[in-house]
Amino acid sequence: MSFEYTPPKYAQLIAELERRIDSGEYLPGSLLPSEHQLMAEFGMARPTVVKALGVLRDQGWIVTHQGKGRFVRGRPAIPTGQQIRTGRELLDRKEVQVSSRLLAAEETEAPNRIASYLGLKSKSSVLLRRSLIEHDGEPTEISSAWLPVEVAQGTALAESEELKQGLRRYVESAAGASLDHIIEHVTARNPTKEECGLLGVKGSAALLVVYAVACDATGKPWVVVESVLPGDRHELEDAYPIR
Rank of each mutant, 00 (worst) to 15 (best):
T6V: 14
D58R: 14
R233E: 13
P8K: 11
G81S: 10
W222H: 15
V49Y: 04
W222R: 04
V126P: 02
A152C: 10
D136G: 03
G203M: 06
S116D: 13
E106N: 11
V201P: 09
W61Q: 07
S116V: 01
I142R: 07
G29A: 09
R57S: 09
R101M: 11
S116Y: 02
P28R: 05
L118H: 08
V63L: 13
A175R: 08
V210Y: 04
T155F: 09
F3I: 06
H181Q: 09
Y211L: 12
S30Y: 04
L90N: 06
L132P: 00
G154M: 12
R93F: 03
G219D: 04
A217H: 05
S178N: 09
Q82M: 14
I182Y: 01
H36A: 14
E138Q: 14
E141Q: 15
D232G: 00
A174F: 09
P33Q: 07
G119N: 11
S2C: 02
S100V: 13
V213R: 05
I114T: 05
K51E: 15
D238Q: 12
D136Q: 12
G67E: 06
I78W: 06
R88L: 14
E161M: 05
V49T: 08
Y117E: 12
E35N: 14
I114K: 00
L208P: 02
G60L: 11
T80I: 11
A105G: 11
R233P: 07
L103C: 07
P139L: 10
V223K: 02
Q153D: 06
H135V: 07
P191A: 01
I133H: 06
L236F: 08
Q153E: 14
L157G: 08
L207Q: 08
I14F: 01
F3T: 10
A115I: 09
E195P: 05
A175T: 09
A40K: 15
E18R: 15
Y170W: 13
K123H: 15
T80N: 06
S227E: 11
A45C: 01
E107P: 00
F3S: 11
L32R: 05
W146T: 06
S30E: 14
A217P: 00
L13N: 12
R20A: 11
Q66L: 14
A105Q: 06
E35G: 03
K220V: 13
A11T: 03
A45E: 15
S116C: 02
V55G: 00
V126N: 02
I62L: 15
S144Q: 15
A104H: 12
N190I: 09
S125K: 15
R57Q: 13
E35C: 08
Y10P: 00
S122E: 14
L236G: 01
E195I: 07
G67A: 09
G69K: 05
L127I: 06
Y10H: 14
G219M: 10
L91P: 01
Q97I: 01
E235N: 10
R70A: 15
L127D: 00
L32Q: 05
E106Y: 02
E226L: 03
V98M: 12
D180K: 04
V209W: 03
G119D: 08
R20T: 01
T48E: 08
Y5F: 14
C215W: 00
G166R: 04
G154I: 12
Y5T: 09
V186D: 02
Y26G: 01
V213H: 03
V225F: 07
E226N: 01
T155Y: 06
F42R: 13
Q82I: 02
G197H: 08
S131G: 02
P148Y: 01
Q165G: 04
V228L: 08
